[in-house]
């Protein structure tokens, strides 16, 4: 799958409290969570974000709470990919589990600015800065993780595996 969009740029240690403040965690509605996404770090994000847009950040993106509402809010806001130097581990796992594509690629982070248009072939990990023409290679996921993302998340992939088992039984 290839994604393409305009870049929102953030620094290091973007925590889950600024991605989706706890005062909004009294709901599981994806649309409602998305309407407050990044509110405490970037008031304009929800006004500007378009379907397909990409977040590029520095180190330790998604640190803090385990709230799955954070990647859910980002995905539901229309973001198609998050690229960072590194991710906090629970956020990393949650993003995979709900099917939000994420890639670690310090070279891309160094060479992509806010407002650049970026595309990415997710299966190959190839990132292209369409604004400058520069290309970057991120480590793609191993097959079993890629399978979870392809199936649309962990639960969907478990269901698919169950069906296969039933068919063989």
């Amino acid at each position: 799958m290839t994604v393409r969009g305009t870049v929102f740029r953030y620094k290091s240690d973007v925590d889950t409290d600024v991605i989706i403040p706890a005062r909004y965690l009294n709901t599981t509605s994806e649309a409602e969570l998305a309407s407050h996404c990044m509110e405490d770090i970037d008031r304009d994000f929800v006004k500007k974000v378009q379907k397909g847009d990409i977040i590029v950040a520095e180190d330790n993106f998604g640190c803090g709470s385990s709230r799955e509402h954070a990647p859910i809010a980002i995905k539901a806001s229309g973001i198609s990919l998050v690229i960072a130097n590194s991710f906090a581990r629970i956020f990393y796992r949650n993003a995979i589990n709900i099917g939000l594509p994420i890639l670690e690629c310090p070279e891309a982070v160094q060479n992509i600015k806010a407002g650049d248009v970026v595309s990415c072939d997710l299966a190959k990990g190839e990132i292209v800065n369409q604004t400058t023409g520069q290309k970057f290679q991120a480590e793609p996921f191993p097959a079993f993780i890629q399978n979870i993302i392809d199936k649309g998340g962990l639960i969907a992939s478990l269901k698919a595996a169950e069906k296969q088992e039933d068919a063989h039984a």
């Binding site: 385990s66 799955e68 796992r93 949650n94 962990l154």
Partner: peptide, 9 residues
């Protein structure tokens, strides 16, 4: 710590 989907699984 994990997320809600891991909890469900």
């Amino acid at each position: 710590g994990v997320g809600s989907t891991d909890m469900a699984a």
